[in-house]
Design a protein around this nucleic acid. Structure first.
Lengths: 343, 343
DNA sequence: TTGTATGCGTTATCAG
DNA sequence: CTGATAACGCATACAA
């Protein structure tokens, strides 16, 4: 039905040639075209509702103004999917299209996705991971600009949450609120393996440093690698049995959720009897009462920043080796109601 | 670096012409090419790692083998983002690319997204909504195949959860487990407005019909349009004060979450003292203990089905007016531990 | 059976 | 200042 409007159409209408029209519409520097001509061309283009055919342009220029986003399982994840939105927003702001694919952690699907995108001339790729860990990428993207979000791949620039700083901030917040006797749930040796997590080590290390800086050490610690509510149930039970602390730091919100359950079962009030400070800011954290004070994983910002970095790289304004191999994004402290001020 | 391999390259290597190579690789019907030739062409193509340039092909054929997915705020949503995965999976299975954009409910961004995709020659569009409601679409997509997921737009085919059946199933399940004295939380007149929700009316209607079929009516009802935990807190308090029911149907999981909170506070056991049956199957439903038995919103399937329908429509194998205006997708009952068998 | 010529809509080069 | 002309990589009608 709606036949496409092409350069030829507007050339015919104005009497100028297609190349002149093209020059006007792209206002190429160097060749100055009389304002009268330009004016007329622009008017007709506007009137006809001309929009350049990006695939034809891409074929000619070799640049598609499209980027690819490949993730392992970000869309299926509760909160990490915000990184998609961040990328989409940034891309739209630059009038770029976003091609998307998800691999579900299958190497074959990953190679598929890369090939599919390459044959479509994308200008660059963002690789996003659900959990920040070190992974490998196949060779198929030689020469293509690549940015990793929430993960680490050898040889590529990564955008990551600033977990160390967050650990520091968390402890400082507790200390500033008068807490001295603090417990921690969630330490586990397995998390130190970069293939398991590239960032949890930093989170813990920030927490440890924060404690040391304040001249404190944990009154009680519950180890555990499976950061689910069950760990919170078990951990809180152990800690409450001892009963000599004022605050618990939980390694993530799901553990905190378990702690809440035990507190409620024992008739303990959060934060009056016990403060809880957590990490991640899953939706969960704002469902429970009182809402959990937690260090937010800034997925939206990370996606946005990754896309902007990629655009710079494509434009040649920035080169990964210019700067640090990682861009760290601040994890804001979301202050809610689970931490008491002991004044 | 990696120069692209083109038809010309492989033509040069084999000695045949580009058109012959093209015919072989697309094994065009009609023109039979000797197996010897075909064999050789395929071998060289394989060896060189040839992959056709989809943008060039698209320019020539007018079909891009790419589809667009435009949503309001699906990626930012806890559970609806699974529909993205469904679309991605189906697209990959058909070797189609997916272009994605999100509007955040701004009409301007919607028109932007449509234009951006049209100039990229997508073959069709899927429009996805976070909450199933009736919306309008601008005129800009004349002639383009369109499927709506989790929403309703006049004149287009929609893929929706089968809420009526789910309501029926929910009540039947309760009745089959011996429940007769049942309460309900979540009815609200405002939800009957199709612009607010296209499906909640059916959910409620299914529930009502199920009750009527069993010769039952609700012992107690708590109305409320804001389906958040607070409504569960308030509703459960009211209901528990009366204390003469065996089961509560909550209109969604967040309300159920509130009910859980009150039950725990009052020392009531779920499901021993009180059964809970819910809707949606948010992540939340599997976090609480006991895990909630709930009617799942089948987002993954809906995305997949929408994409498959779109492909059929593009291929001309199916025309929206051929069949019903809606494709209803079954909402499975996820049986967990919140409903007691009164057998 | 295979090759040649042409066009898809742009942009870039180079004359005029 | 502007307009032919070629080329991007592919598919196809037609000629050989």
């Amino acid at each position: 039905m709606n036949k496409r409007i092409t350069l030829a159409d507007i050339a015919a209408r104005t009497g100028f040639s297609a190349s002149t029209v093209s020059m006007v519409l792209n206002n190429r520097p160097g060749s100055r075209i009389p304002e009268a001509t330009a004016e007329r061309v622009r008017a007709i283009a506007e009137e006809l509702g001309y929009a350049p055919d990006r695939t034809a342009r891409g074929l000619r220029t070799g640049r598609s103004e499209a980027l690819g986003f490949i993730s392992d399982e970000v869309t299926i994840t509760r909160y990490a999917s915000a990184m998609v939105r961040g990328i989409l927003d940034a891309a739209e702001a630059c009038n770029h299209a976003v091609l998307m694919a998800e691999t579900d952690n299958h190497p074959r699907r990953l190679e598929n996705a890369i090939r599919l995108m390459r044959t479509r001339h994308i200008d660059g790729i963002i690789v996003g991971l659900m959990r920040a860990r070190q992974v490998d990428l196949p060779a198929g993207l030689g020469g293509l600009p690549v940015i990793i979000v929430n993960g680490k791949v050898d040889g590529y620039h990564a955008v990551l949450p600033d977990e160390y700083q967050a650990g520091l901030d968390a402890v400082n917040y507790l200390v500033a609120h008068g807490h001295r006797r603090i417990a921690f749930i969630g330490r586990a040796a397995v998390h130190l393996d970069p293939r398991v997590s590239w960032t949890i080590g930093r989170r813990i290390s920030g927490i440890d440093t924060g404690m040391a800086n304040a001249g404190l050490s944990f009154v009680h610690e519950v180890e555990g690698s499976d950061w689910e509510p069950e760990l919170g149930y078990r951990g809180a039970a152990e800690i409450f049995d001892r009963g000599d602390i004022t605050a618990i730091i939980t390694a993530n919100d799901r553990i905190a959720f378990g702690v809440y359950g035990v507190a409620q079962a024992r008739g303990l009030s959060i934060p009056d009897d016990m403060s809880v400070l957590s990490f991640d800011d899953e939706q969960l954290a704002s469902y429970v009462r009182p809402q959990v004070t937690t260090m937010r994983l800034p997925y939206l910002d990370m996606g946005q920043i990754a896309a902007e970095l990629l655009f710079k790289q494509i434009a040649g304004e920035w080169c990964p080796t210019d700067s640090a191999e990682e861009t760290l994004v601040r994890m804001p402290l979301v202050e809610r109601s689970s931490v008491a001020d002991l004044g």
